[in-house]
């Protein structure tokens, strides 16, 4: 690693197609009224972009920087801090397996193995057809349902690996 020099001077070119659509822009501007600063809406805007495109590209960062009146570096500063935003494109469906203590002692490793066996993806990897990404997550606040997973936005208590198998099939 230490022998490479990464060039940050060359950026990706600006694209004519806007990432932040007019509709999204209107939604963001409606949020501005709720806070004293424009930057406060940034987390919400990033969620909007992440949900729609499954990633936050350079173009998105440039546009968001302009909308929120901050530098692109500051957008990246916020973006890169949080687990839910991704610079790389994620799959259409996110399998979020909780790996914290309760879920760990209740067998989350079996779930990870099931996903590996069935879809051939490891942590933060995406299937070739782009349908699924496996995301190990830290405590998702569902310890009484351990081992618990978030399939996209839905919380599930997994009682058996077969149930996970069915759930993946149903989601695909």
């Amino acid at each position: 690693m230490a022998w490479q020099i990464v060039d940050r001077l060359k950026g990706t070119p600006d694209s004519a197609d806007k990432v932040v659509t007019d509709e999204m822009r209107q939604k963001i501007e409606a949020e501005f009224a709720k806070y004293p600063t424009k930057q406060a809406v940034l987390l919400t805007s990033l969620h909007m972009v992440q949900n729609k495109y499954k990633q936050i590209s350079d173009q998105a960062i440039r546009e968001l920087a302009e909308i929120h009146e901050i530098s692109p570096g500051e957008v990246l500063d916020t973006l890169s801090f949080y687990d839910m935003y991704s610079r790389e494109k994620l799959g259409k469906n996110l399998i979020g397996v909780c790996v914290s203590l309760s879920c760990d002692i209740c067998g989350c490793k079996d779930l990870m193995k099931k996903v590996k066996d069935k879809l051939n993806i490891g942590p933060r990897e995406t299937t070739e057809d782009g349908k699924f990404t496996l995301i190990p997550m830290e405590c998702i606040g569902a310890c009484e349902m351990a081992p618990a997973i978030l399939m996209n936005e839905d919380l599930h208590k997994i009682e058996s690996v077969e149930q996970l198998d069915d759930l993946i099939d149903k989601t695909a």
Binding site: R8, K10, G11, T12, E74, D77, F81
Partner: peptide, 16 residues
């Protein structure tokens, strides 16, 4: 800016 958090954080700039 600071990229990511914790043990793996790095100083970086937005490309370009």
């Amino acid at each position: 800016y600071v990229h990511e958090r914790g043990n793996g954080s790095e100083i970086d700039v937005f490309p370009g």
